[in-house]
Amino acid sequence: MNRIVSGLFRVSIVLVMAFITLPLIVVMAASLSPSSQVTLVPWEWTVRWYGDLVARRWIDPFILSAQIAVLVSLISGVLGLLAAYVVAFEKCPGHAAIMSFLLSPLAVPQIVKGVAIVLFLSSAGLYRWVGTPGLVAAHIILTLPFAVRMIATAMFNFDRNLDRAGQSLGATKAQRIRHLLIPIIKPGVFSGMTFAFIISFNNIPLSVFLVRPGQTTLPITVINYLEYSLDPVLAAVNVASLLFVLAVIFVFEKIGGFSAQIHGGSK
């Protein structure tokens, strides 16, 4: 009986993993297709579509998206840390209500938020903000709840006795934050920043309202291109941006060590 259960368990794990990875495999295969149509011909392949990516029409949006994502990730990390500290660690008056408020943007559809932001900017006479500043601000609204949530969780899990131990050893509040709290919750901060980076880098529904002509982010460029042609260069763009995101996650994990937090270990 146990063997049947564990067999079913293994099969279901394989199915779930296949379900997650198959689309990626299909895109990778398509990006290597020699035909100008998106087809799957496993025994013929070429890398010429990747050569096309060097063109400015792809490089410029990539750089813009990466710049925005880095800014959004950094600002979300700093704001998230400050908010989580006050709400989750110091437990300021009304902390539960403030936390709910900080998480509330999650409940609003992105399209609605996008429309609202554009309406706000135009009626407030700030239409010139459309473009990079607007994109950064809008993405932060989207990513902040994730960052706050991740960092607040790390703060909730922080053992208060460590703070008390630091206090009994004569450490001032600033010293305790710097030497105890921040290093220990660092994985939480970096996982929040990673989420913010990925969400910003891949965002379409908000960005679509805020890009300027000739100055579009990578996902919007892909959408625009898709309207007129469907060829393997899109698959190549997707694979390349996937690899870029993976590389960023790898670097963040190296600095922040958050997989230990996810897997429950520590160094």
């Binding site: 006795n161 008390r164 131990a165 630091g166 206090q167 450490a171 030497h179 290093p183």
Partner: peptide, 27 residues
């Protein structure tokens, strides 16, 4: 508490997990 110069030993030890033994003791 940080001005009282009173040492404290906790039931769950409350060692700083990101520091070595020497760093903990030298804190």
């Amino acid at each position: 508490p940080e001005k009282r110069q009173v040492g404290l030993v906790f039931q769950n030890y409350a060692l700083f997990p990101h520091m070595t033994v020497a760093q903990n003791v030298g804190f």
